[in-house]
Amino acid sequence: MYGEFPLGGQPQEEVLPVPTGSVKPATANRLAIVLFSGTIDKLMSASIMATGAAAMGMDVEIFLTNWGALAFRKGDYTTNKRVSADYADFQSYLLEQMAAKKVTSWMENLEGAKEIGNVHIAACSHTMTLFDLQLADLEPIVDEVTGVAAFIERAHDSAMTLYI
């Protein structure tokens, strides 16, 4: 019957725990991005977000992990034509349109973002170990290799955090 609970009685209301740690509100005028993806559609999206934020006067903190870190291997961006697997059928169309519309590459966007704002790019040490990479193996636009704690510390008080 509608309106009756199958086991009788009232549903138990779950009481969520109240955080007790020092969770401070986000205050810094900063955009934090976890860049996990190494396909150009997502790299482009991340680079535009970073560039837009830098133009708007925000600091930008980018953490490169997994495929996101691999995409920054020296010279890789010049030949990277990968797109998200679920849109693989759009690959040639996307590449054609980007060439026809003279869209700036994601790497050029990030270089532009660094010119106009305070943009810090760090590569995940776990990924670097996993793929036997050193900072010198990555494009010079990457500032350093850090662990997740360093990124979380920076993301903690950022006004926005994106996972791309």
């Binding site: 560039t51 837009g52 830098a54 133009a55 708007m56 700036t104 966007n109 532009g112 973002a113 106009i116």
Partner: peptide
């Protein structure tokens, strides 16, 4: 985002 980048 080039117009705002060039502007900035």
């Amino acid at each position: 985002p080039m117009p705002v980048v060039m502007l900035a």
